[in-house]
Write a protein that binds this DNA or RNA. Structure first.
Lengths: 329, 329
DNA sequence: GGACGCGATGGTAGCGTTCACATTGACAGC
DNA sequence: GCTGTCAATGTGAACGCTACCATCGCGTCC
């Protein structure tokens, strides 16, 4: 910077002013400085800047170490939005979802000097950990979170599950079975709630939900326990991957979807449309959620005190080929 | 830091020494300093540290904005390894894969002050862009890259494709058709090479490869152009998602896999095992590749001059239910 | 017993910015 | 013509740390 100042024949302060788009610089001076910068291939040192301003222009993201479709797309949604707003994105992935790991991850990000943190681990441990984040660090929970004291962006899981369940009941199914996610995941619980409550409202019997771990394998194994039963004509799976495992099990058992049994998933991963048959599912706009989370975080950073805003993104039922009326007896 | 020094009754320099694990501190002094730190809840300011040392302990990753399974797992592999080595990870995702975007991304990371960069966009534009990175910035290309002047970590695509092709020929198929990835992707080209060369070596006819865009949709559409042909008994798809689309098209056309037609994918995404039928595919260890890439980068950072090391990770053929002998005529 | 080496510590400068304030010059107003 | 105002620029300090060198005390050696 001193070099640039020398070449342009101005003080370092004027260079700084040009750098920061101050309007207190004469156009011709600005031009002189700019050309000196070009000549010297000067680039502002963002570290020094961060030191003096106290803001690093970097946001931290705590993400679960997984290739689940949801978190990955959310991450990219965040990055894209952050980019547009002039922020860098630093990630820390946690391998296990206990509270300790999440807190350690947050600690790491704080040590790095991030200006704010987004947490996209939709697990109860993460939600709880968020409450322990020091009050001066802006935080937003994405995809799920505790109800109070921390801003949250989430898809309306209840509505999504209710929509899926209603769709199946509307086709004439007497009830709907549910292959749920792990109960320690907030989303899984909310989907159970939406499903159960819809069944109750419709006066339909509520079968016991069975819980998998989101993996195709768990869907496959749980489905094998279900295929023998005459009363199972419709299954609502808590995500598309488990739905895939279920499809596999049904096919092995010689059952045809949707003739013998209807199936609805959740997420709408890119593959869902090409399952055999194409999967009816509930679409979540993960990208948009990442975007909203980022905007909420910037909001919070701007206003100093932690808000408790809650942005809810609506899911959308996508009807494809895996659902139909129940077999007539 | 000054406060800690005061409380511990030492100079700030000694505090710094404790912070940096210098062995020039008497154990009892160290203990005094440490307890002062605890008392004041002191945390080192990594930004100030970065300013004076010139290293930010942060690595940059340029990733393609996609939820393709490969890049996402590689990213996490990198993060995990970086974490272990005491580095932070900052990501920039690029939306389109032209050279300009990749260079801009690299620029952004440099402006942020990263100590090194990993590029996981296995596209020719990215590979070319890497060559334009200033020589003093350590770079590693992951998953693919140019042959010279930049260290590269990659799976042996040629061997993977060759293995898949040999497997199908070994089952008795007269030849193997190939649904390739976009030719602008280095990996796609290498898989074509491996496939073609294996066919030639075996004296089998080489059908013209058709190119998709990695998406299930493209696999589906390309497969519909193939299903009518009597001479197509085996297809090698360049990734699992296209294989899924192909399966869908075959099923629609009333063809049964593997009875009427055998199919092999590439990647071994978690879902592949639960396709109908379970997909024979070529597994790439993306996590390991991320890890190796990071280690290579640290190596390069340590040795000042850019090496041209090339780490090759071997893929593994995973035989499942989508391949069998050709139908007897 | 003085010179020396060495372990432990302290003092000062400087990393590259921005911030707060000082200075300059031009121009308007009376 | 003097003062006040304001735009444009400059000066010095500070951000919180580490690098470098100086200092101090102690034991060892001849």
């Amino acid at each position: 910077m001193a070099d640039v100042a020398r070449v342009a024949g101005v003080s370092h302060q004027t260079v700084s002013r040009v750098l920061n788009d101050s309007d207190l610089v004469r156009p011709e001076t600005r031009e002189r400085v700019l050309s000196a910068m070009r000549e010297l291939d000067y680039r502002r040192n963002s570290v020094a800047r961060a030191l003096v301003t106290g803001r690093s222009q970097t946001l931290g993201v705590v993400s679960f170490d997984t290739t689940l479709y949801g978190p990955a797309s959310t991450l990219f949604g965040i990055e894209r939005a952050a980019h547009e707003e002039g922020y860098f994105v630093s990630i820390v992935s946690v391998r296990s979802l206990d509270r300790e790991s999440v807190l350690t991850a947050i600690d790491r990000l704080q040590a790095q000097g991030v200006d704010g943190i987004l947490i996209i681990t939709p697990h109860e441990a993460a939600a709880e950990a968020v409450l322990h984040v020091p009050g001066d660090m802006p935080v937003v929970a994405v995809e799920a979170g505790p109800d109070e004291s921390v801003p949250v962006v989430a898809v309306d899981q209840f509505a999504g599950a209710a929509g899926a369940t209603r769709h199946l009941l509307g086709l004439g199914h007497r009830t709907v079975w549910h292959v749920a996610g792990p109960p320690s995941w907030l989303e899984a619980r909310q989907r159970i709630d939406g499903w159960r409550s819809t069944l109750k409202d419709a006066g339909a019997p509520v079968p016991p939900p069975v819980s998998g771990d989101w993996s195709p394998r768990s869907g496959y194994e749980l489905a094998r326990g279900l295929v023998g039963r005459q009363d199972v004509t419709a299954i609502f799976a808590a995500n598309d991957q488990m739905a895939l495992g279920i499809l596999h099990a049904l096919h092995e058992a010689g059952l045809e979807v949707p003739r013998d049994l209807s199936l609805v998933g959740f997420d709408d991963i890119p593959e869902a449309q090409y399952f055999t048959p194409a999967l009816t599912t509930v679409r979540q706009d993960f990208n948009e959620m990442g975007r909203q989370g980022l905007l909420l975080l910037l909001d919070e950073m701007g206003s100093a005190n932690r808000s408790s805003a809650r942005v809810v993104v609506q899911p959308e039922l996508v009807v494809r080929g895996s659902t139909a009326a129940p077999p007539s007896r």
